[in-house]
Amino acid sequence: MARLIETSPCAGLLPRTIGAVDLSEVEPAQITLIAPFKGQQAAVSDALDAALGLTFPAPNRATGQGARAVWSGAGQALLIGSACPALPGAACIDQSDAWAIVRIEGADAARVLARLTPLDLRPEVFQQDHTARSVLGQMPVSLTRVGRHAYEVMVMRSMARTLVQELTRAAQGVADRIEPSI
């Protein structure tokens, strides 16, 4: 029987540093999509709280430290970095191999992302643990702010190379800017 070699979505592409921005791959142990059935969201949230100490996130928010729940659309969230507990009130789907996650960190991170997405990324609007589904270039993405100058971008695995290419190009553009001297 053939033995397959497992590689991460961004293998050979990351990490890299461009100007004031670091790009690195995030490889969580497990990713599970959780979609509570109608009227079950509160019960699912309680069950998650009891098992992992985090709640089901409100729209455009992420919850938890370590293992995290990231809102990923109407009525659904992604549990990242932990095995999924038994949740009778929800559909739970293992998507561990479906996503590529890139962390973009550095003083210019927001400036780089602003070249690619229409989201309002001003720090007073898009705060820590805020998340959004939007577009980055032509790709649908999930974007979460995880630190003062750090963001995580998730795309479907098949788009990993394009994501790295887009971020690299934008970061290069930001790094090459010459600030006008006064």
Binding site: P59, N60, A74, P118, L119, D120, A132, S134, V135
Partner: peptide
């Protein structure tokens, strides 16, 4: 209503 003001291209 869920996400707030968003760009038309979404």
């Amino acid at each position: 209503p869920l996400c707030g003001d968003r760009d038309r291209r979404e």
